[in-house]
């Protein structure tokens, strides 16, 4: 017992202060929310479109990057000689609407809107989520899970993952939605009492990602359920997921 106590004391208090305190610093090669520059983009060049493994970039009529399809490999930035695409270190990039994930102009990014008043009344201070992996590769799973550890302590915001859909207020979905998981996923959704929300985490869930064209998957949750929060990334950094959840529940309001 003594050893447990001394180890506990040595381990110290390790919970991240976010959203209070200084903004967390991302590592050097981190690929965050991309910035697209139409002026620098050469009209007769198609290098970024050609190299993108998931077809996230189009140039019709002007340069567009779909965060819902992007795997954040950064190859488009590497290949662009005119530096028209740059992955910033901005980790806040979740949205409320699918179309807001398409980055094309220098306009302000439309981040997550707070959930509507009657939902916020119910879930704002206590949100229980059922997490289902439907073809996820265990990376999104890991970074969703890590929010529950003492390093992040999701519980301090009243948000928790629960073991039964009957106990849940919402469904958090990971993976491209494999054909073999559609039924179980729908049953889980149906078992959650109304009103409920749906959160899609990771590029696979958003669009099918690398698997969008494989007949073995449904190419993401779009069209299966109404989605309240889209969290891009492959996988999203835990702070991106937390930032999205806190914006949805109205705990972060600034841009």
């Amino acid at each position: 017992m003594l050893k447990e106590i001394t180890t506990r004391m040595k381990q110290g208090y390790k919970t991240i202060k976010f959203p209070a305190g200084e903004r967390p610093k991302m590592t050097e090669h981190y690929c965050g929310r991309p910035i697209v520059n139409q002026v620098l983009c050469k009209k007769d060049c198609n290098a970024c479109v050609e190299i993108c493994p998931t077809g996230a970039i189009s140039k019709e009529p002007q340069l567009k990057l779909d965060l819902g399809k992007c795997v954040f490999c950064g190859e488009c930035e590497n290949v662009c000689e005119s530096k028209a695409i740059h992955f910033s270190d901005e980790f806040s990039m979740s949205t409320s609407r699918r179309e807001d994930l398409i980055v094309s102009t220098d306009e302000e990014f439309k981040t997550v809107a707070e959930m509507r008043t009657e939902l916020k009344k119910m879930f704002g201070r206590s949100l229980k989520l059922r997490v289902v992996s439907a073809g996820g590769c265990n990376a999104c799973e890991a970074d969703v899970n890590v929010l529950g550890t003492i390093g992040w302590d999701l519980g301090r915001f009243g948000i928790e993952y629960v073991a039964s859909p009957r106990h849940a207020d919402g469904l958090l979905i990971i993976g491209p939605v494999t054909k073999n998981m559609v039924l179980a996923l729908k049953k889980t959704y149906d078992a959650i009492p109304e009103d409920k929300i749906v959160i899609a985490v990771g590029t696979c869930a958003l669009s099918g990602g690398l698997f969008a064209l494989n007949p073995e998957t449904e190419a993401g949750v779009e069209g299966i359920f109404p989605v309240d929060l889209w969290v891009p990334g492959c996988p999203p950094n835990p702070i991106t997921i937390l930032d999205g959840l806190l914006r949805l529940t109205g705990k972060i309001k600034d841009l």
């Binding site: 795997v71 590769c137 999104c140 799973e141 890991a142 696979c204 996988p235």
Partner: peptide, 15 residues
């Protein structure tokens, strides 16, 4: 161009 990225996610904890 896709192949290398498939390897990243065969098992995402074993990238």
């Amino acid at each position: 161009k896709k192949t290398r990225h498939y390897m990243d996610v065969l098992a995402g904890d074993t990238t």
